[in-house]
């Protein structure tokens, strides 16, 4: 069940990604319409984060390509935000909350110039949107998990992009933060932003997302939630790995075989 968008803003074309020659994603191919909240859903080890990192150009694909706004990602980075997993950074780093949010402006100001008063104002405004305005001067090690996630979100907002890729923004946050975040995402989507969220909770996925990408090393389903997110597709995605797929991957790793002939 793969339904393509009419005028896609995100296009992932026949994407295969490998770690040390072992494919972790096979021939993933889907499109997303603009202004939707899309959930990338699948069991542990399905390759959800890998897919996001590959779209952002952090991992080179073995084959296939990605287009955002019909162009390669390197050409449109100023219009794309990325929220990495919260655990991926050292929260004991000597910077304040405001410093972190200001990093969202670094793409706009460029490599050598410093952020200015306008960037400060935008950063504070974004902190306000996630309900963290009072914490601007706080050192980041003093934040709770939910607050850390809000700070990351504010940093992405400060980029003022059109597409937002978020890796597990609901992992390890309290219910209040989760509701606050989803409310904010809905607001952004109704303002025409496109939001792609890696998520692992099946219960809430149905209500949070209007587009679903169901993944388990290969694409199981993609499309509007009511059509792509059915008991049948969920069963396919969660019913266990395709054993043969894993075995072929192991053989490729062992023999250092390329995933394409040339």
């Amino acid at each position: 069940m793969i339904i393509h968008a009419q005028q896609p803003i995100v296009e992932v074309h026949d994407l295969t990604v490998s770690y040390a020659r072992k494919p972790v994603l096979w021939g993933v191919d889907f499109t997303l319409p603009s202004g939707c909240i899309a959930g990338i859903v699948g069991p542990n080890g399905a390759g959800k984060s890998t897919l996001l990192k590959t779209i952002m150009g952090l991992i080179p694909p073995s084959s296939g390509y990605i287009k955002l706004f019909d162009r390669p990602v390197d050409e449109v980075r100023s219009r794309v935000s990325y929220v990495p997993q919260r655990e991926s950074v050292d929260w004991d780093f000597p910077v304040s909350v405001l410093d972190v949010v200001l990093m969202g402006r670094y793409g706009k100001v460029g490599l050598l110039r410093n952020t200015g008063a306008r960037d400060q104002a935008i950063a504070r405004d974004c902190l306000d949107k996630v309900g963290m305005a009072a914490f601007a001067k706080r050192q980041i090690s003093q934040l709770s998990g939910g607050q850390q996630q809000r700070v990351f979100l504010a940093r992405a907002l400060a980029q003022e992009s059109d597409i937002y890729f978020m890796d597990e923004p609901f992992a390890g946050v309290d219910a209040a933060t989760e509701q606050a975040i989803i409310g904010l995402l809905r607001e952004m989507a109704s303002a025409g932003k496109t939001i792609i969220v890696v998520h692992h909770d099946l219960q809430s996925a149905r209500t949070y997302f209007d587009w679903i990408i169901l993944l388990n090393m290969r694409l199981v389903a993609a499309g509007p939630t009511d059509q792509a997110f059915t008991d049948e597709t969920i069963q396919q995605a969660y019913g266990g790995r395709l054993n043969l797929l894993s075995q072929v991957g192991d053989v490729m790793e062992k023999r250092a075989f390329p995933s394409r002939e040339n």
Partner: peptide, 19 residues
């Protein structure tokens, strides 16, 4: 600024298009 960003959050620096 760039060194700080890379030291704190490398993937994010990459995502912003920093070399």
């Amino acid at each position: 600024k760039a060194f700080t960003l890379v030291a704190f959050d490398r993937p994010y620096a990459q995502a912003l298009g920093y070399p």
